[in-house]
Design a protein around this nucleic acid. Structure first.
Lengths: 150, 150
DNA sequence: TAGTATTAAGAGTATTTTATCTGAATATAA
DNA sequence: TTATATTCAGATAAAATACTCTTAATACTA
């Protein structure tokens, strides 16, 4: 599992919110029902996203949560980093603390390439793109992107 | 963390063993000292690799563990699959059980590409290649491989 | 055959992650 | 102003993962 469950829940909720009209608050109860996630657990996760300024929350009747910014300005990575921390995917694959440019482990370069690509993808996919299954502007395929670079 | 710690420990031990003369058994004590891993924990992990026929073990004096096959015939993926199971990297990134070719989640294609590439890399890097830092036949870079394919 | 070095196996503990519960704070609406 | 719908916050529980310890089994050496 690359991303923690908290992170996955946060992503799913964010993508769901991105598909809604921006003005309306959606209750966490509705989110947890729709997405089949434990209400209390989801509450915790969304609090983290609220603190990180990804979401905006409102208490009381007609309250709930909504995206704090337009969906096209929030990336997949924004959400992931708010929950799993920005050092997700920064470790050496063999768990060697010394591994780095100077003293790379045998897999260092290959792994680095993967992490970079994954990061690139996450940073360049927005919630808006994710919320529309048949999006007009599809994320450029990794293969073609890398091929163009090479 | 993509791979479990057990898995990482198993990999490090395997790579270490690959760098040794094949005939000699290496004690788990020596492995745990060299690699700075808890002896008992490493024992557990290596038992799994022994069961999976990656390693061969021998009890008693002059005993220990060694690779069961030549290092060039054991892939990174062999080790990973023996410890984390062969379904590592098979889940949907958004944790949707329904996600698949028929009903893909918004990230399905991008994610699939990643998993395929990672799997390809893991399946095509052998312990022999990993054990030599300055290997004669470097693993073909992902970028060039993908570029060639495209 | 006795002693010892070694892995094997399983039980036990600790830590982290995931999930649940309860009560408080807040804001709306009647 | 009172009742209600909601998030917020903290405590607790359960499950998964990581790690430790103890004992048994094995096989060499002397």
């Amino acid at each position: 599992m690359i991303l923690s469950k908290s992170c996955v829940y946060g992503l799913r909720a964010s993508v769901y919110l991105a598909s809604k009209k921006h003005d309306d608050f959606v209750t966490i109860r509705k989110l947890s029902d729709e997405l089949n996630i434990s209400f209390h657990f989801l509450t915790k996760v969304l609090q983290q996203l609220t603190k990180a300024n990804i979401l905006e929350s409102y208490k009381g009747p007609n309250g709930g949560v909504k995206l704090a910014k337009p969906a096209h300005s929030i990336s997949f990575l924004d959400v992931v980093a708010s929950i799993d921390g920005k050092y997700v995917l920064s470790d050496c694959v063999l768990g060697l603390s010394a591994c780095g440019e100077l003293d790379p482990c045998p897999l260092h370069n290959e792994w680095q390439e993967f992490k970079d690509n994954l990061r690139y993808m996450m940073a360049n996919v927005t919630l808006e793109e994710l919320s529309a299954k048949h999006r007009q502007k599809p994320v450029k395929s990794l293969v073609s992107r890398i091929a163009a670079k090479a």
